[in-house]
């Protein structure tokens, strides 16, 4: 009982810090609205926001290149594009750092903003 009273404040401090962590974790996506920038050749064609509302499959045609990407909050992957090797499809999900590159179509998808700082 005595010990419990002694550390009650400690428990409160720990809970407050954990609560703040949870709060900032929930608030986090609104701060880090990541977007995928699609460029073909040396032209920036499209910015796809990687948000919950945008999630799902999308097919776009830019500069004569038709491609299908799948979006999830904070990440993107190439699903279908007309090219011989399919390296961009094999790249899988990207969330910053490595871009998706399709050399035959001179297409590059880079994820910017969000948590991709690491």
């Amino acid at each position: 009982m005595c010990l419990r009273r002694w550390i009650r404040g400690d428990v409160l401090v720990v809970l407050a810090v954990l609560g703040a962590a949870a709060l900032f974790f929930v608030l986090r996506p609104s701060q880090g609205a990541a977007a995928a920038c699609v460029s073909i050749g040396d032209r920036l064609c499209r910015e796809i926001p990687l948000t919950q509302e945008q999630a799902g499959l999308h097919t776009y045609t830019d500069e004569g290149v038709t491609y299908t990407v799948e979006v999830q909050p904070g990440r993107i992957r190439m699903v279908e594009i007309d090219c011989p090797d399919g390296i961009c499809v094999k790249t899988g999900w990207v969330d910053g750092g490595t871009p998706i590159v399709c050399l035959p179509n001179r297409l590059i998808i880079e994820v910017k903003g969000g948590d991709g700082l690491a």
Binding site: V14, A21, R28, Q31, G114, L117
Partner: peptide, 20 residues
């Protein structure tokens, strides 16, 4: 950039452990 605050939840979580 305010993007650094994305780290805050993880740093706070860590600070509970390191502080204890």
């Amino acid at each position: 950039t305010a993007a650094v605050f994305g780290y805050l939840p993880f740093l706070l979580l860590g600070s509970v452990l390191t502080g204890l």
